[in-house]
């Protein structure tokens, strides 16, 4: 409609005005495109998130108005002293803990507005977890452990195991597919956990202290692996840690203290 107007204006000789209008239209379109692109890149967006725990009549404020964004394709580390709210924030972001105030969306989805069942399903489809204590089921083999997220989503067992074996190959554990967790070293167990977090192709991966149970060298290798296989253009990776030795792997580092994000700095993003 606007193009027709401009054409008619130029035909009537008001070319200067037409050029000016054309520039304005182009500028607006570019701005809209940039905003859309920016929104498209945001995996997690927290606005003024507040979370309070109540234990035995005492209220403890764990998150005091958190504002943070996690972009796709980046590895964001949440760092800070014990009790600063890192784990609470990652739990809210992963949709396994309700926040009291504020908004928190993951790829545009607000967990708070979802029904419990829908939230669980969304979490199963779109979020991968790497835990500090690995949480590998001791009675399942590595391949079976990796297949768990797929089995939860209803994938047939045979297909789930095949895909789990493929994921284990990606993390270099093709020789230990049928080993039980107790037969694996700490580093190997964490690699199984990473394969489990990736096997169903989630858009967001949350890791809680992935290197704290590992020695320096193994922790370094695990982080290299995480950067290599878990960071992708359509995926975001959030790692909670207070292990300063791995800060160099982050694209951005959000420093937390007393329930607040006090500083966000650019990281080295080393591969």
């Amino acid at each position: 409609m606007e193009e027709e107007t401009l054409l008619s204006l130029s035909q009537t000789g008001e070319a200067r005005f037409a050029m000016k209008e054309m520039r304005r239209v182009c500028r607006d379109s570019m701005q809209k495109l940039m905003v859309a692109q920016l929104n498209h890149n945001i995996a997690v967006k927290c606005d003024n998130v507040v979370k309070t725990y109540e234990t035995g009549g005492t209220k403890v404020v764990a998150l005091r108005g958190i504002d943070i964004e996690v972009r796709t394709g980046e590895l964001l580390m949440l760092v800070g002293p014990s009790g600063c709210g890192k784990t609470t924030l990652i739990s809210v972001i992963a949709g396994i803990l309700d926040h009291d105030e504020g908004d928190c969306t993951v790829f545009g989805n607000d967990f708070k507005s979802m029904r419990n069942r829908d939230r669980t399903t969304y979490r199963g489809q779109n979020i991968g977890f790497v835990f500090q204590a690995f949480n590998l089921l001791p009675t399942l083999t590595a391949a079976e452990n990796v297949a768990v997220p797929l089995l939860i989503l209803g994938t047939p067992r045979k297909e789930a195991i095949e895909r789990a074996e493929e994921a284990l190959r990606r993390v270099g554990l093709e020789q230990r597919m049928h080993s039980y967790p107790k037969q694996l070293s700490g580093g190997q167990q964490q690699r199984v956990a990473i394969a489990r977090a990736l096997v169903h192709g989630p858009k967001l991966i949350v890791c809680d202290e992935p290197t704290s149970a590992l020695d320096h060298e193994t922790g370094h290798k695990v982080m290299e692996l995480l950067r290599e296989v878990a960071v992708g253009p359509d995926r975001a990776l959030v790692i909670v840690t207070h292990d300063a030795r791995i800060f160099g792997f982050a694209d951005r580092i959000a420093k937390m203290d007393d329930g607040r994000v006090v500083k966000i700095e650019e990281g080295q993003g080393t591969l």
């Binding site: 669980t120 399903t121 979490r123 199963g124 489809q125 977890f129 949480n135 768990v148 939860i152 989503l153």
Partner: peptide, 16 residues
């Protein structure tokens, strides 16, 4: 319990 918790976190419903 922590394994049941892990299963719930990974998307297992209460019914499951």
């Amino acid at each position: 319990l922590r394994y049941f918790g892990a299963l719930k976190a990974m998307g297992a419903t209460g019914f499951t």
